[in-house]
Design a protein around this nucleic acid. Structure first.
Lengths: 391, 391
DNA sequence: GGCACTTCCTTGCGCTGCGCAAGAAAGTGG
DNA sequence: CCACTTTCTTGCGCAGCGCAAGGAAGTGCC
């Protein structure tokens, strides 16, 4: 929102992408002048975001050798909290988004947002003190399913927890003393995939999330596309599912009502494939070569493919990343998904543009942290400002 | 692409939106300092884009009176050429996008792009010389159906004309001596609606075009969303149509195969509603209170609504503008469309967020000119550069 | 060792463009 | 003619980039 120095951001981005890299190369990659590179490197090094890594690149036979710079991952941390239905996932990431510590905290009283967030904040502070006390935390990102008002840092409505208008940012900022950013989990995951995951630095991507909720996030050149009311990517109630299934929304055939974890697990349970309606059981069964289980997950992937194909045609991203249990675990599902998308979509350049998510659900904290990292990458020099607490 | 001075652009935008307006007000609207407003106004006035309009605003009772500035519409022009199946529509617009002159030029030999474009260019030059010789043309915008490479100014593929890889920009620039910008017609219309039409300055909008081709364009805060391969908004082959209808693309139920002008006119013809398969005949019949014709167009509006609803949910724009014969001409169709979208979509805030297009097809030149105006609005100070010809 | 030569990095300078603050300008009312 | 109010302009300082000159750090040749 406030890209004070677009040059520093581009520079940091280039270093993140290209590992240890000479200043000259950065200038070529970013289009900046060598002078600007030097100055911005100095500024970022002063903030502890970059270091010189002498000798990390081979000498090229002529001229003065490089003095490569790289991201300084040893001095700073970013924290992430993902709010799920039954627990919070906490994570501490370095500036490259690598998990340095993590912890799962079950909700004691899921109906009490203040208590849940306070506990998460306290455990996060303790996690930091116990494991990485020497590293300075720069901020905290929060990802939650549901409708998030990013500007205000308020969780307007959480689908499964039933929370409403929870001032997540202020609660956590007060408890941790860190600047806090909040976003929806689909967007957070999308950004994480782009920064550190499957979508390796593609300029535009769509992330399609299929769990108990079904949601999509769109990222284009400029960043996350939120839409007028933060509702962009609402694929849950598109009529792509089974027309015989009624949705709580009042209509029939909604995608979410058909392929959500809960719905599909029940379907497998009723078909006698698994002994209880649990999607993880279904995944385990398929992984253990249960043919019926695999067939069910492949069928689900085909339905998910309809949404992916539609997103390809409408948004035309470089890649679509899909987070769905079967697709991420079983090659059969991923193959079915890819084939179906390539056959259905006009804009899908090749099956390889459909990617299974690279993050397991146990590291959703990465996505949460990505929300904060995203902001730091976008305006690194903003860290010069004394404290951003409670902004 | 090269927003040299974002301040001047914001300033010009504010003046465009708010008519004659005092500098102080501009400062408040744009967030710029009064000093910056003064300086940028001076710069833009020097380029002939703004004028002072003394006395155009009432005195407020106290203090020094305003010296309002407004867009100078009498000195400059922008030209537009829209490439349709059988003819080109030429238009000369002032800086507010108002049509000052226009002309329809039938193709002499539709198979010869060079001849068609040369004729259009020559007629455009003559139109200018005959009607508005005193006004300086700043540039030329071109809108065409099909796949356009905006960067290169090349019409990669035109759906109905069958052209391929036509270097439209270079051909027209050489013939007219003007800087030329080319874009797809859906995007051009979308921008025109946003700047001068129904979508009056909404920050984000989707434009859904239903003619012989079916296409959509997405505009968000940052500008037109093109997608990775300039294919964003490809709704033509979504399976929202009649599953019994086969599409040349090889699949069935495609939206375009079902509701395109041609398909729907044939449908009405076969049903005996009109004596020949012409969509304008169908529109005329409905306008003349032919009940069967109206019913057919209402049905078409309902199918179009499926696509509009889907676009609402996925992109979540402020408004969706629909260009379709029935919807733009008949209140019944517009009402049916609005009701259906509001009932189907989750993200559509109210039926009033669905807007029939405000431009008739005869002024598609407006859309073409908007392509060039868009660029001028985005970086008005770029006009300081001597000549942009053939860039 | 000294000297070209190449490539990499830094420094000084000038430019653009903004915000801040002081003040000039142009009205009304007493 | 003088407050008073609001609007606009001007001088100054600051940030940040590009340009160009020059310093730095290696190799290779004599």
């Amino acid at each position: 929102m406030n890209p004070r120095s677009t040059a520093a951001s581009a520079l940091l981005g280039a270093v993140l992408r290209h590992g240890p890299v000479a200043r000259t190369t950065i200038a070529r990659l970013t289009g900046l002048s060598p002078a600007a590179v030097t100055r911005n490197c100095a500024a970022l090094a002063g903030l502890g975001l970059l270091t010189e890594v002498a000798g990390s690149l081979p000498y090229r036979g002529m001229g003065r050798p490089h003095t490569p710079v790289d991201v300084e991952t040893g001095r700073h941390l970013v924290a992430g909290i993902h709010l799920a239905h039954e627990f919070c996932t906490l994570a501490l990431l370095d500036l490259r988004g690598r998990v340095r510590a993590r912890l799962r905290v079950p909700h004691r009283d899921p109906d009490d947002p203040v208590e849940v967030l306070a506990t998460a904040a306290d455990r996060l502070v303790r996690l930091h003190a116990e494991h990485l006390p020497g590293q300075v935390p720069l901020g905290l990102g929060v990802a939650a399913g549901g409708w998030v008002d990013t500007e205000a840092g308020v969780l307007v409505e959480h689908a499964s927890l039933g929370w409403r208008d929870v001032p997540v940012r202020d609660l956590l900022a007060a408890r941790t003393g860190l600047p806090v950013l909040v976003d929806g989990h689909a967007r957070a995951l999308a950004r994480a995939e782009q920064l550190f995951g499957a979508a390796g630095h593609h300029e535009s991507l769509v992330h399609l999330f299929v769990g108990n909720v079904v949601d999509a996030a769109i990222i284009t050149g400029g960043g996350a596309h939120r839409g007028a009311r933060s509702a962009a990517g609402g694929v849950a109630h598109l009529a792509l599912g089974d027309p015989a299934i009624e949705c709580p929304c009042g209509r029939a055939g909604c995608l979410e009502a058909t392929v959500s974890d809960r719905a599909w697990a029940w379907r497998a349970y009723r078909a006698g494939v698994i002994p209880r309606p649990s999607i993880t059981d279904l995944g385990d069964a398929a992984a253990a070569r249960n043919g019926a289980a695999t067939a069910l997950l492949v069928e689900r992937a085909r339905i998910v493919a309809r949404a992916a194909a539609m997103l390809f045609d409408i948004v035309n991203p470089d890649v679509v990343v899909v987070t769905e249990l079967g697709v991420t675990r079983l090659p059969e599902c991923a193959d079915a998904l890819r084939a179906e998308v390539a056959a259905t979509s006009r804009a899908c350049p090749s099956p390889s543009a459909v990617l299974p998510s690279s993050f397991g659900l146990d590291v959703l904290g990465v996505a949460a942290g990505a929300v904060q990292l995203d902001a730091i990458y976008a305006d690194p020099l903003d860290l010069r400002n004394p404290i951003r607490l409670g902004v």
